[in-house]
Design a protein around this nucleic acid. Sequence first.
DNA 1: GCTTTGACTCTCG
DNA 2: TCGAGAGCCAAAG
Length: 110
Amino acid sequence: MKSNQSFNEKVYALLRKVPKGKVTTYKALAEALGTKAYRAVGQAMRCNPYAPKVPCHRVVASDGTVGGFSGSRNPKSREVKRKIKILRSEGVKVHNNTIVDFKKEYFLNF
DNA sequence: GCTTTGACTCTCG
DNA sequence: TCGAGAGCCAAAG
């Protein structure tokens, strides 16, 4: 299998598979790709060339905490806050930077 | 082509 | 229960 698309693009593809109102984790994405590059997935989000197509806000930590990137460290950015707002709009309940019923909304069946 | 970093995760103390 | 360290892979310099 040749990697025609870059690793990040694969992540975007999987992330795009995530239905609306559901969330996933970096681990799930990495595992789905057949690798353990959890961090590589995050890096793809960091670039996030496909902003609307790649809902990085739907990606959370394995613990279900949204914090982990520019949010906990930069509360002033409150960028995460906006993402949380979107998640709530999608139907995902988020409280205290954490996904409510995370396991319930956890989507790993790509 | 090697080194550094990174929006992570897991295990040990 | 919380904190620190190691491991893993990939992209960028």
